[in-house]
Design a protein around this nucleic acid. Structure first.
Length: 418
DNA sequence: CTTCCGTTAAT
DNA sequence: TTAACGGAA
């Protein structure tokens, strides 16, 4: 966020103005600023979460009371929440049909930047420090932020890696994802610009697999729009289940298990690698996000909201709609008709998506010199062999097969069975 | 025009 | 298991 503010401030300075930064209640600060500069109107892009909408309503009321006009734009999504419905006019609860409608719809072109006339010579307080903002995690090694970094990342991705996206996207060691999520979250890339570049890459694709790969990436942009639709339609789903069961799901309290999960000390290598990447980089590969989410909810049997809160605190790309959507999907309380008993096996996931265990070794130093089959077989090794292979790495903290049975039972009970 | 199935497919 | 569709009733 600080890198983004710094980048935006530089843009205004280059134009002979500045960015004025205030911290506090926008319903008080914005009318005061508008008065001070004699502004007729305040303009912003709409945010769609429940809290954001409450905030906006308060700011709007306050500005109107001061006789100041408000204009808002839909800028976050390609197709704004509510704009895509099923044939009955209702919101979609399943992605695949949403995707059909989404692809059939012509997207807007990028909007031109406002022309810089009548800029004021403002001077606000300096950027706050990470420490002053209470940044968590202060130690994380985050990628460069800001408009320039975002533009560079998009250009680099669309020039090359996007053609291998479909082949690499589920291989965390390949690092083949776009890494655009922080820029989409912080607004340092416009979604229409992203879509335009992706479409252009698709049109210029050297072959059919390349074009299909670009479409596979566009599908991820559609997921983002989909979860935006879902959250705007049901803002309560930030804290309550999208799908309700007959009885409340009996999640467990397991503070030790949750701590091991957060620390990357569960003894399931792919889970631990993901959780440590999160601490180290404030980022996690998306395939691994699904694996760790399944582990928390279906192996530790802990409420998805505990996991969501941790992601919200640690992820540089935390986005309410995406993270709530993803967590509820993994927990079996969300959109997309899924058999509730579909539970990830962390060992099989590790073998399938990190076959050479390179991702695991990158983030779990205790396993650095350990053979691939020993890493993937960690669950079945006996204690003596574990100690020999990697004395500092923990034994599995639970039995997946047992927990899988308990998870199924937990959902059977919630459905109203015995 | 509404409701009732059969079909399809699901990060 | 179930949303969504679409043709049949």
């Amino acid at each position: 966020m600080l890198a983004c503010l710094s980048s935006l401030r530089q843009r205004y300075r280059d134009l002979g103005s500045d960015l004025e930064i205030r911290i506090g209640d926008p319903a008080t600060i914005l009318p005061a600023l508008a008065d001070r500069y004699g502004a007729d109107a305040v303009v912003w892009n709409v945010d769609y979460s429940g809290l954001a909408r409450e905030r906006e309503a308060a700011v709007r009321t306050s500005l109107r009371a001061h006789g100041i006009d408000v204009t808002t734009f839909d800028d976050v999504y390609l197709h704004p929440p509510g704009s895509i419905t099923n044939n009955a006019g209702d919101p979609y609860a399943v992605f695949s049909y949403f995707w059909e409608k989404w692809t059939a719809r012509e997207p807007d072109s990028p909007h031109p930047s406002p022309s810089p006339t009548d800029l004021y010579p403002v001077s606000g307080p300096e950027l706050p420090t990470r420490r002053k903002l209470g940044c968590v995690p202060p130690e994380a090694d985050v990628p460069p932020g800001g408009i320039e970094a975002g533009t560079e990342r998009l250009a680099a991705f669309c020039a090359d890696a996007i053609y291998a996206y479909d082949a690499n996207r589920d291989r965390p060691a390949a690092n083949g994802t776009s890494r655009l999520s922080p820029h989409l979250k912080w607004g340092t890339l416009g979604i229409r610009t992203v879509r335009e570049m992706v479409d252009r890459a698709g049109a210029e694709a050297p072959n059919q697999p390349g074009a299909d790969s670009c479409e596979a990436f566009a599908r991820q942009l559609a997921w983002r729009d989909f979860y935006g639709h879902v959250l705007a339609e049901k803002p309560d789903t930030v804290s309550t289940a999208y799908r309700t069961y007959e009885r409340p799901i009996q999640w467990r309290a397991d503070p030790d298990g949750v701590q091991a999960w957060k620390d990357g000390m569960t003894g399931f290598p792919i889970v631990d690698a993901g959780m440590r990447q999160l601490r180290r980089e404030a980022f996690m590969h998306n395939r691994v996000r699904m694996i760790v989410a399944s582990f928390l909810t279906k192996d530790l049997l802990v409420d998805w909201r505990t996991g969501y809160a941790w992601f919200r605190e640690r992820l540089v790309d935390h986005d309410t709609a995406n993270d709530v959507g993803g967590w509820q999907w993994a927990a079996g309380t969300g959109t997309d008709a899924q058999p509730y008993f579909r539970i990830f096996n962390p060992t099989i996931q590790g073998e399938r998506y990190d076959p050479d265990a390179d991702y695991i070794r990158t983030y779990v130093p205790e396993l650095q010199g350990v053979a691939t089959d020993v890493i993937h077989g960690w669950n079945d090794l006996d204690a003596a062999d574990r100690t020999t292979a990697a004395p500092a790495y923990p034994a599995p903290i639970l039995n997946h097969a047992d927990r899988r049975e308990l998870a199924i039972e937990m959902f059977e009970t919630a459905r109203g069975g015995d």
